[in-house]
Design a binder for these strands. Structure first.
Lengths: 155, 155
DNA sequence: CTATATATTGATAATAGTTATCAATATCAA
DNA sequence: TTGATATTGATAACTATTATCAATATATAG
C-alpha cells in the first residue's frame, strides 16, 4: 500500500518525515499511515501542542485512530529528537517541535496562558558557565518566565 | 487543646508558622495539629520534596494522618506563598520552600537526578528586560539546566 | 509476487497521582 | 460551654498515561 503520496524522501534536503522514517528503520520500527498522520498534524500546529488538541484534530481526519497510538507515536518522536516534551505547571504535558527550530525559552501569561518564545544569547552563555562551575555537561535547558501580559493587565 | 507547645507567635520575627496561621485566620480556615505537623516536616527538608517523601516521614510520626490532608495542606501552603510547586519532567510534582529563601534555579543531572540550586544576578536582570520588551510584568520564573554531573560522566 | 516473521493497531484494562465525597470530629468565636 | 462550621481520614472517583492482547499491516527474504 502506497500511502506516501508526497514521496517526501525524493527531496534532497532532510525534513522531518525523512528523519522519522530513518529513525524508524534504524530501530526496526515501521512506517505506518497512523505515524505519518500524527507527524503531519503535529507539524501543522505552531508552538506548543497538548495531547488533547492533537487528538481532537486527528479525530476530524480519522476517528478510528486510537489515543494509545497517539501517545506511542509521540514517545517515538521524542526519542528521535523531533519533538520535545514539556510539563507545565498544571501537570499536563505538552509537546513542541524541535528539529530545525532554534532552542527557545518561554514567556507565559499566568492569566490568559498566552505564550511567547524568545532567546537571549547572553543568558545562554551564562548557563554554560554555571554548568562548568559545577562540573556539569549541559545537555538542554528550559526557562519559563511567568507574568501578566499587557492585555490581561488592562482588564 | 494546646498543641502549639512552641508558642511560636511570641517570637517577634515573622516565621513560617505565623505566616501560615495568619493566612488561615484571614481565610477563615483553622489551625490544626495536622497542618502544624505537615509544615514542620516540610520545613525539615532541604530543597525539593515530593509528596512521597513527605508522606513517608509523616507516617513515621503519625500514621493516622491521611494522604488527602497532606495534599490539601500543601495546596494551602502554596496559596499563601510559603511553598512553591514545581512539575519536573517525569510528571511528578515537587514542592519547595519559598519564604525567606532567595529564588534559585536548578541544575539537574539527567542520570542520577542530583539537583543543584544556583542563582545568577545577570540572568535575572536579562529576564526582567525580556519581560519589559514584550510588555509582561514578571511574577516568577523557573530555569532548569539539564546535564550530566561529574560523577555520572566518570561511570 | 508471495509467504512469513514480527511490529503495529485499536479497544480497553490497569496504573499512578491527585481530587471529591461524606459522616464523624475538632476548632473557634460568642 | 455551646453551636456553627471547618477539618479529618477513608475511600470512591477522576484524569492522564501506559500495558495487554488478539487481529491486522508492514517489511523482507525468497
Amino acid at each position: 500500500m502506497d500511502f506516501d503520496n508526497n514521496n517526501l524522501s525524493q527531496n534532497k534536503m532532510l525534513n522531518e518525515f525523512d528523519i522519522f522514517k530513518d529513525f524508524l528503520q534504524q530501530k526496526n520500527l515501521r512506517w505506518t499511515p497512523q505515524r505519518k498522520m500524527i507527524l503531519e498534524i503535529f507539524l501543522s500546529f505552531d508552538g506548543h501542542v497538548d495531547i488533547e488538541s492533537l487528538h481532537q484534530k486527528i479525530q476530524e481526519q480519522d476517528p478510528s485512530l486510537g489515543i494509545a497510538t497517539l501517545y506511542r507515536t509521540l514517545k517515538i518522536l521524542v526519542d528521535c529528537e523531533l519533538v520535545e516534551a514539556h510539563s507545565f505547571h498544571d501537570g499536563k504535558k505538552s509537546y513542541e517541535r524541535k528539529f530545525r527550530v532554534q532552542h527557545h525559552d518561554h514567556l507565559i501569561c499566568t492569566q490568559c496562558e498566552k505564550t511567547i518564545e524568545f532567546e537571549h544569547a547572553l543568558i545562554e552563555k551564562y548557563q554554560i558557565e554555571i554548568c562548568e562551575e559545577y562540573g556539569f555537561t549541559l545537555k538542554s535547558h528550559k526557562m519559563e518566565l511567568m507574568g501578566v501580559c499587557e492585555n490581561c493587565r488592562k482588564e
